[in-house]
Design a protein around this nucleic acid. Sequence first.
DNA 1: CAAAACGTGTATTATGTAGTACATACTACA
DNA 2: TGTAGTATGTACTACATAATACACGTTTTG
Lengths: 119, 119
Amino acid sequence: MPATQFGCYIRERREKLKEKDNSFSVRQVAGRIDVEPSFLSKVERGEVAPPSEAKIVLLAKELGEDPDLLLALAGKVSSDLQAVIRKRPELFGRLLREMREMPDHAILRLVREVRDGLW
Amino acid sequence: MPATQFGCYIRERREKLKEKDNSFSVRQVAGRIDVEPSFLSKVERGEVAPPSEAKIVLLAKELGEDPDLLLALAGKVSSDLQAVIRKRPELFGRLLREMREMPDHAILRLVREVRDGLW
DNA sequence: CAAAACGTGTATTATGTAGTACATACTACA
DNA sequence: TGTAGTATGTACTACATAATACACGTTTTG
């Protein structure tokens, strides 16, 4: 049985939105991200594996979710993040392995330092 | 034509090692990483796509190369690095995108700071 | 109450990934 | 000169990925 995490999560998100707006039916969301309704239905119930990266990104926009989070739930990593690593694999490899166990707040602080150009 | 970069690189590395040690023939290296010689030959000439992550890691050990570098040349990112990102996708997504343009020395300094626990 | 919209089941497909198996042809060397 | 080792060419395969097409029964609604 393929990744239930992803399916459950987007079903919940979609149904939440549907409470306020009927255009968030399986059929209509499927139509907007350009897949067959039956496919989206199966994805949501975890009957098949999550869709491709491109479809997941469209779905994230549709549901107002973070694409990186949805991709992670689908067991994937955004190809543009992969490209960043592939440009300097040894450097980023070392950095990420060192940061594996760091607490969230420490990473967040680094994010801010880097953003503010304190390097 | 699939990724020539990777093939050329490992062919050069292997032939360099073969100058000193005849056990670095296509056949024997293929045998040690458990693939058919014809397959390794095609990989080195870029006639087929690079092998799986597992085989690339074995090849890196065999050739004394950095696995992350070889994986990058093959257009891949190590699955354990991907797992690090998938655990905290939003955080690492932001960090990596911020660091995309940072110079090597700045990243290296961060690696050292993180390693030395200055956080 | 009919027709439109809905969710789901079954069957099928195209493309890519990651190789194997075996035959052929070249090359060194004893 | 033959044989052992080497590289490469051809043909094929198993499995995964990423879906489509369409039929079916069930609400919902105008």
